[in-house]
Write a protein that binds this DNA or RNA. Structure first.
Lengths: 206, 206
DNA sequence: CTAAACTGACCGGGTAGTCGGTCTATTATC
DNA sequence: GATAATAGACCGACTACCCGGTCAGTTTAG
């Protein structure tokens, strides 16, 4: 096997990006492999050389997009500063990231729906959610340690916060006109921060 | 035209329920009209007598399910009592409702994704979200009036809360094992209530 | 008798996937 | 350093299947 310079990574990226573009315009199920092929500037055989099926291609794209989204989040968040400030940075990350990738967000939604059915997709999305929650959990922990926040179960709190952002994104994707993303995410962050600073409610019965 | 007793409503329900069952098992796009036909105990022609196309059938089902979900929410919520208690009722409504309709939730997710593309579906989902937010807004308003909550923009606050519940549902649908729905929704509600009781953060720059 | 309600065999368009063939860089051989 | 051999990378016409939708006919209630 004579080794030529390996172009498989470039090719895969090329195909994945073509797929992302087509999916965002036409949706997951209305997009055809032929369209992706055309956009990728390869041929049918070429695309199928790197991805055995449409499902496999989709799964790979989910993986890539989840990793990318997390990366953006981390980037904004690693700016540092006190915990509350980081929350606000995260808030910005959310709003900016979403807006920047607004076209991709509808595809992400389709991926979420797919995750409930396809094990490979589910694994990727699951990991994304877990990582997202992990990230938030770190903040909550730091806030509690520094005394800025009152004690609570950091994991559950982080889950709530992550859910809040995911939910806001969902509402916005479905009806962008009804929601001012920046305003609402700021408000949401403020609400959560206030709740974290307040004393925990008496947990009766549990 | 000899008027026979109108069975169209029953038939439509019959078909819609068949569709819901099939969709929840096989997903929106992998479900075929033939499957729905079989399940509905009608014939192809019969189904197409009431719904002109698969899209129309889907749209009708979205409408029905959104209305149903809202109905459940309203039911739990109309129990009355002080505002905080209603929040907890809403929390229960969320957890119970979701769990009861867990099979349907994956379909709902697919509908959300569809809403970003199909105008008819979008209209239904939009209305559902708006109604949901409206409901929460009422609570927030009441809480503020009664002095239980500190003043804030009730609409935005309600949006945050609705987003929180939608997001929690999303996380749970994708990864039920990772989240204790009841525990988390209780925690989330507690967090929000704490935030609402606390004083609003100084809204600089607004 | 009428027309709405319903049947199910059939069809045609669209699409994921295939496959025999081609091209090109590398290596082996003389 | 020319020629042949090799195999990975890529091409695109073709296909088989699937599935939404149709329609000519049948049943049934009034």
């Amino acid at each position: 096997m004579p080794p030529r310079p390996d172009v498989s990574e470039e090719r895969k990226v090329q195909i994945l990006e073509a797929a992302a573009a087509v999916f965002s315009r036409r949706g997951l199920h209305d997009s055809t492999m032929d369209e992706i092929v055309e956009r990728s500037a390869l041929s049918k055989g070429g695309v199928y050389w790197y991805f055995k099926s449409k499902d496999e291609l989709v799964a790979a794209l989910v993986d890539r997009m989840c990793a990318g989204a997390l990366h953006i989040l981390e980037h904004f968040v690693k700016l540092g500063g006190p915990v509350a400030q980081r929350f606000i940075a995260m808030d910005r990350a959310m709003a900016d990231g979403i807006r920047q990738l607004s076209k991709m967000r509808t595809v992400m939604l389709e991926f979420y729906a797919l995750a409930a059915r396809d094990p490979a997709v589910r694994a990727s999305v699951r990991k994304y959610f877990q990582d997202e929650i992990d990230l938030v959990e770190q903040f909550v922990r730091q806030g509690i340690e520094s005394g800025e926040f009152c004690p609570s179960d950091p994991r559950k709190t982080a889950t709530s916060i992550a859910a809040l952002y995911e939910g806001l994104t969902l509402l916005w994707v479905v009806d962008p006109a009804a929601i001012d993303l920046e305003e609402n995410s700021r408000q949401a962050t403020a609400l959560v921060l206030a709740g974290l600073r307040a004393s925990p409610p008496p947990s009766r019965k549990g």
